[in-house]
Design a protein around this nucleic acid. Structure first.
Length: 504
RNA sequence: GCCCCCAUCGUCUAGAGGACUAGGACUCAAGCCUUUCAAGCUUGCUACAGGGGUUCGAAUCCCCUUGGGGGCACCA
């Protein structure tokens, strides 16, 4: 046995993408390994061939890398205790099952799935706990061996020892005691010869020297089987750490997509990636979901989180996923980005939103005027594009409907048109065509017209952006350039005049 | 139905018997700032699920009730 080195693992089954709850489990396991300068292992649990999705392994790795969780051993990089994919470890499990069989700690069960299902139904109907009735428990060695030799299909079940109750220690919750009467001899090996999770996970965790098993609390109910298996093999158990589940925002059940309806709240790692959540923000946010390193603050660097992480400080209570807080935190991280960094992380989102190549977006020099302004206005990167739709159009594409967007506060259509005329005339004077110069000019104009700056700017904002709400005007204008601004104002003016005629 | 886990503001949480007139953050509301919308700053609202114990003293320990969650597969 190795020294008491901390070794944790993340052991997803490749049946889809990484779910929020799994991601948090992976993060905590990683934090604990890094905190203790131990190892973090990635293991793929694909013993269920029916549900296996070959593409999902890549997705899992992509998600972990995105969050910044690197693994020291895993299917792609190997390691001293490989292979790290359970489907490649079948012989090992069969060998261990055999050991249990020879020592009579397990037995062959010839019951068909149909019989078992019927049994469960009857028990449920009788309001009793669905449980294996132990039909094959006392088969003689000879009969068992003979039936197997003839080729009759069988599973292997663990023979639970006779004891009143089983107690194990959970790092977060303390001792948990379960009455043995609620347990049944669990299947270890399926009739196709493949190990079931319980066997595979226990054998692997032991062989891979996992010191702390972090997993969701949905595993508490089956933990006694694992403890009993360790006992049957004569091995020391790892420390058990059952993390609380993450609930839907409405508190109804575990986080899942089906509960979100039309709202499409992000649930899988990829959802958060496409929503434009920053990995650093997600890392910070997820760390604080169930754990508080310091009650007086919310924003922590990765290193601070690693340094302070403590398993025993994790809350045992399930939490409803606080999306609003994630958004807020992501906004904090967005605002802390340098202008350059913000531009580069936004580029892919802009390219996708406007159907352009990233290079094309990169070449739009004018964006540098407005992007820093947008940086304070978004919480996620996906929100950047809607602030910039005006930048990806030409004057000819501008549509001013409803027309109100061109009408200034306390002005009518005619007055708004006149305002545009004044501004139009002014644009030639703006040299260079920069936000500061434009601002100075417009302030003077507002004074001369005896108008509030806001009123004067209203129609121009509409003309330039095609909306009543937009990024700061002068930055937009500088981004577009003099010619384009003139063209838009002209077009808007025409629309206003037409409106004025229609109204009178 | 049975077993297990959990329970502080609307939400995420601090709190490990006295430092609690229960702290922070998000959300929400108001004000300031202001070029629309944000951001920023200031202020405000709101909680120990209920009932019994233990104790000089309980949000903190115990029990019951209630509520919520998880589990009860040849899935993980």
């Amino acid at each position: 046995m190795m020294a008491d080195k901390v070794r944790t693992r993340f052991a997803p089954s490749p049946t889809g993408t990484v779910h929020l709850g799994s991601l948090r489990t992976a993060l905590f396991a990683w934090l604990w390994a890094r905190h203790a300068e131990g190892d973090f292992v990635l293991r793929i649990e694909d013993t269920d061939t029916k549900r296996f999705d070959p593409d999902s392994v890549a997705g899992i790795m992509e998600g972990l890398r995105w969050l910044g969780l690197d693994w020291d051993e895993g299917p792609d990089i190997g390691g001293p205790f490989g292979p790290y994919t359970q489907s490649e470890r079948g012989a090992l499990y069969r060998d261990h099952a055999q050991r249990l069989l020879s020592s009579d700690k397990s037995y062959r069960c010839f019951c068909s799935p149909e019989r078992l299902q019927r049994l469960r139904q009857e028990q449920r109907a009788a309001k009793r706990q669905p449980q294996y009735d132990g039909a094959c428990r006392h088969l003689s060695h000879d009969e068992s061996a003979a039936r197997a030799a003839v080729g009759e299909p069988f599973t292997i079940r663990l023979r639970l020892p006779a004891q009143a109750q089983i107690t194990f220690h959970d790092v977060i919750r303390g001792d948990i005691t379960v009455a043995a009467s609620t347990l049944q001899d669990p299947i270890l090996v399926k009739s196709d010869g493949m190990a079931v999770y319980h066997l595979a996970a226990v054998v692997d965790d032991h062989r891979m020297h996992i010191s702390h098993v972090l997993r969701g609390e949905e595993w508490i109910a089956t933990a006694p089987y694992h403890v009993l298996l360790y006992e049957a093999f004569g091995w020391d158990t790892p420390a058990w750490v059952h993390l609380p589940v993450i609930l839907n925002p409405d508190g109804k059940g575990k986080m899942s997509k089906r509960h979100q309806g039309e709202r499409h709240l992000p649930v899988n790692v990829q959802d958060f990636m496409t929503a434009g959540v920053l990995p650093d923000a997600m890392f910070n946010f997820l760390s604080l979901l169930g754990w508080t390193p310091d009650a007086s603050k919310e924003l922590f660097t990765r290193q601070e989180l690693i340094d302070r992480f403590e398993l025993a400080m994790i809350s045992p209570a399930a939490a409803k996923m606080p999306y609003a807080k994630l958004e807020w935190m992501n906004g904090e991280y967005v605002r802390r980005l340098s202008s350059q960094a913000f531009r580069s992380v936004s580029t892919p989102f802009l390219a996708r939103a406007f159907g352009k190549s990233e290079t094309a977006v990169d070449q739009m020099a004018g964006l540098d005027y407005v992007l820093p302004e947008i940086q304070t206005r978004v919480k996620t990167l996906r929100e950047v594009a809607p602030w910039l739709s005006w930048a990806f159009k030409s004057a000819a594409d501008m549509e001013y409907t409803p027309i109100d967007m061109l009408i200034g506060r306390q002005l009518d259509a005619r007055q708004s048109a006149e305002t545009l005329e004044v501004c139009q005339a002014m644009l030639e004077e703006a040299v260079p065509f920069e936000p500061k110069v434009l601002q100075a000019l417009f302030r003077v104009a507002a004074q001369e017209q005896d108008m509030k700056l806001g009123s004067l700017l209203g129609p121009v904002r509409g003309a330039i952006s095609g909306a009543k709400v937009s990024p700061p005007l002068f930055e937009m204008m500088a981004a577009l350039g003099r010619r384009e601004c003139q063209a838009r104002i002209h077009r808007a003016h025409t629309a206003l005049v037409a409106e004025d005629v229609a109204r009178s």
